[in-house]
Design a protein around this nucleic acid. Sequence first.
RNA 1: GGCGGCGUAGCUCAGCUGGUCAGAGCGGGGAUCUCAUAAGUCCCAGGUCGGAGGUUCGAGUCCUCCCGCCGCCA
Length: 533
Amino acid sequence: MTAVQNPGKSYYVSTPIYYVNDRPHLGHAYTTVAGDVLTRWHRQRGERVWYLTGTDEHGQKIMRTAEANGVSPQEWCDKLVEEAWKPLWEHLEIANDDFIRTTEDRHTARVQEFVQDLYDKGEIYQGGYEGPYCVGCEEYKAPGELLDGEGEFAGQKICAIHKKPVEMLKEENYFFKLSEYGPKLLELYAANPDFIQPESARNEVVRFVEQGLQDLSISRSTFDWGVQIPWDPKHVIYVWVDALLNYATAVGYGSDQEKFESTFPADVHLVGKDILRFHAVIWPAMLMANGLPLPKRVVANGWLMVGGEKMSKSNLTGIAPQDLTEHFGVDAYRYYFLRAIPFGTDGSFSWEDFSARYTSELANDFGNLASRVAAMVGKYFDGVLPEAKASGPAEEALAAGLAKAVAESDDKIGEKLDFAGGIAAIFEFVKQVNGYLTEQEPWKVAKDESPEGQARLATILYAAAESLRGVAVLLNAVMPRVSGLLWDSLGAEPVLGALADQRIGEAGTWGTLPAGVTVTKGEILFPRLEEKK
RNA sequence: GGCGGCGUAGCUCAGCUGGUCAGAGCGGGGAUCUCAUAAGUCCCAGGUCGGAGGUUCGAGUCCUCCCGCCGCCA
């Protein structure tokens, strides 16, 4: 990690600028939840944070989809954004600071300025182009990467990704001198090995750039759903150039310099593997061309495999996030994908695995722990958390376990974006607390009515409750609602303040939860799942 | 067609530069506590490490070929 150069700068994370051609699916939600956990974590470190998401609404594909549905492109986007995208993020408790739409004036005006700047600097020139074009990909294809059509498309060339016929297009286009940035990009990758993650993705990008870059066609004149080229309004700006700029326009580029300087560039651009190249090649080249600072990291997450069926932009499965949250709940949903699949690698998901982890990890290990501790404080101390006056080695071991969980999860979640590893560290501690209770047997100690026995009982239950306090703080970023329930159950808020305000750095400070708080049993954290389905 | 990568216990996966590397979690089986969401804790896995050769004193761990997946490129 490099030292912070601008102390007042926000930790800035973006989701991909999602193409709003259709409703969001599991893959979109996976990336967005990851970014939400990452930013919530950094907020709990006490940092200034900016979490951006938004939608890419231009391009031929959207135009045609809208046409097919008998509405204007803008109406189509409005409907999807308002009825599907924004509601899903609310549903999943995504705490984004902004939601930018590329059809908004604050974006389009700045995009024109940016492109005009490049034009004025000689980074853009006019040229002609003719070739096979895939509407699905929104890009020209090299003849060699096309497949021969079969069945209804027999005799035609089809796109290898979309399996649909390509069209021969001829355009007078404007080109960005991307080819000149190959060496600089390779230098960037070499000087910053972490710029692209994971490593497998990085290697592919490096190899791609090493083979030599072509100049990028950045205008289209065959349709008009886009941002006009300022000096030649017959053209609209290539949708990806338009879209990528959201990461700058949304944080004040060209309009609010103070905001821009305190936010830009991004610390982390989260992307799917399919759009990695746009973010790791074109985007930094665009910024270099206009003398703007480059993002710190572009991190690609892997594919989710469902029952062996891979999901992708062009192969949507029928699974909506709501199909899962309905059964498992939002908190468990947020937890599951990050816990079960190492971030950055492809991973398979199944209903059965989700169900198994829910029952074993969330309900039995974690939820039940909270339940048994609250029940005992209620039963033996009338719900008033007693003081720990007889601590010993067992309690020291617990405190050390919590400190370790804090350190490990902070490094893994907050720095390495290893959500699975970080969550595992927290749950190892949960397991340790269960083991502690089994060894200490407070239910037996409770029968010893001597002062020593009662002091020991008080100490055990205090230690268990204090452990849960730490767990609530650490899990808040991942499962805000349930962690809040636990926080309430511990009676912590009146004395310690809101859960979201608890600092990660202090989460391991043993003895933070003061004796005397009112512990209540409260709502079951993770109810057992219904047998159905 | 060229180049990554993958194929390890029922399931999901760890196994860096070759010699406790045959593992973890879950499921399953057994024991045990009883505070708790019939939850907790402890014990039990003998799987030809995709297949066939080869290098080596010794190979999931290196080489060759083959089979099956996946990605990038052409």
